[in-house]
């Protein structure tokens, strides 16, 4: 059984009289210790999937389908039931380390309160644990910096603290939502190396959300490509890079001059993002697709295949 199993997840947001259909019929699995990358351009629904897993969707959101964690549907749990899973079993690293720490609270308290809450540690033991994780994420002079406030750290150091916070309870799954996007390029590499080391030590599963294919190449064995809130392709990362099976993935890879170039982004495909005020009835990528056929505009393609799954009605051989 997989650790996390997402089944037909739909998320829509009410905005006035309309809906924004942010996530449409998404299904995927994450096994114990697996590293899965979720890529897609901005607005494709990546963060909302993570929020649905954490039970942190905005009040105007409606989610349907199932988010099964070790067999129990997280979407059906109450906030207090979710509180027993948050941080202890599943934790999340948010994109912006500048704003995701509480500026009015000392670091040791922000780290310590997690283990006080979930493991019932005393404040003293919690401080010890805080120091341990601070050292694990390689914050220099950690002992003396426990009592510092967030603004006394650089962006990279703050993101290390956020990572420390996410792993302090040794969770089974870490959701990393663009953990390096807000950081300098040189710092990005350090943070990814750190995440990689920690993942290997704890054998935690990681869902890495990113729009940076360079990051994906070095870190995740599997990749899921989202477009307009739908899964376009899901495959082992190497297969996907060698032989992308979906026109969108192809476009992405073509837009990236060099996979190892860490600054490459996904915005380089001509056309504009899909209108999401209605649930998709045809392939959402069709209007931007170079290989589009009439049939593409008429029905939703299924996600088919075993090792390399793709949602495209055209055979791979025919794609340009």
């Amino acid at each position: 059984m997989s650790l996390l199993s997402i089944r037909n997840l739909n998320i829509r947001f009410r905005t006035g009289d309309d809906y924004v259909h942010a996530v449409n019929d998404v299904s995927f699995d994450i096994a114990k210790g697996q590293k899965l990358a979720v890529v897609g351009e901005s607005g494709s629904g990546k963060s909302q999937i993570a929020m649905a897993i954490m039970g942190l969707l905005a009040p105007n959101a409606e989610a349907s389908g199932e988010v099964l964690y070790e067999g129990q549907n997280l979407l059906a749990l109450s906030q207090s039931q979710l509180n027993r899973i948050r941080a202890r079993d599943i934790s999340i690293i948010f994109q912006d380390p500048m704003s995701s720490l509480n500026p009015y609270m000392r670091i040791e308290r922000q780290l310590g309160e997690v283990v006080v809450q979930h493991e019932g540690l005393s404040r003293r033991d919690a401080r010890k644990r805080a120091l341990e994780v601070m050292e694990a994420v390689q914050i220099p002079d950690a002992r003396n910096r426990l009592t510092a406030y967030p603004h006394e750290f650089s962006g990279g150091m703050r993101q290390r603290i956020v990572i420390a916070m996410a792993l302090i309870c040794k969770p089974k799954l870490i959701l990393a939502d663009e953990p390096t996007t807000a950081l300098d390029v040189t710092v990005q590499a350090q943070i990814m190396t750190l995440l990689d080391d920690i993942q290997r030590d704890l054998n935690t599963a990681v869902m890495l959300i990113t729009h940076d294919l360079g990051v994906v190449a070095g870190f995740c064995e599997d990749t899921l490509v989202l477009y307009g809130g739908r899964v376009m392709e899901e495959a082992p990362t190497l297969d996907l890079f060698d032989g992308p099976g979906h026109p969108y993935t192809r476009g992405l890879l073509r837009a990236v001059p060099n996979i190892s170039d860490a600054t490459a982004t996904l915005a380089a495909i001509p056309g504009s993002p899909p209108n999401q005020t209605r649930p998709p009835v045809a392939c959402p990528f069709a209007p931007r697709c170079v290989d589009v056929r009439d049939a593409c505009l008429e029905a939703l393609p299924d996600l088919t295949g075993s090792r390399q799954k793709r949602a495209c009605i055209r055979p791979v051989e025919e794609l340009t």
């Binding site: 942190l56 948050r86 202890r88």
Partner: peptide
């Protein structure tokens, strides 16, 4: 604000 979202993700009760 984002840091309250972080606090929620820690599994702290709303009162805390």
């Amino acid at each position: 604000s984002p840091f309250i979202r972080t606090a929620r993700a820690k599994g702290l009760p709303e009162r805390t």
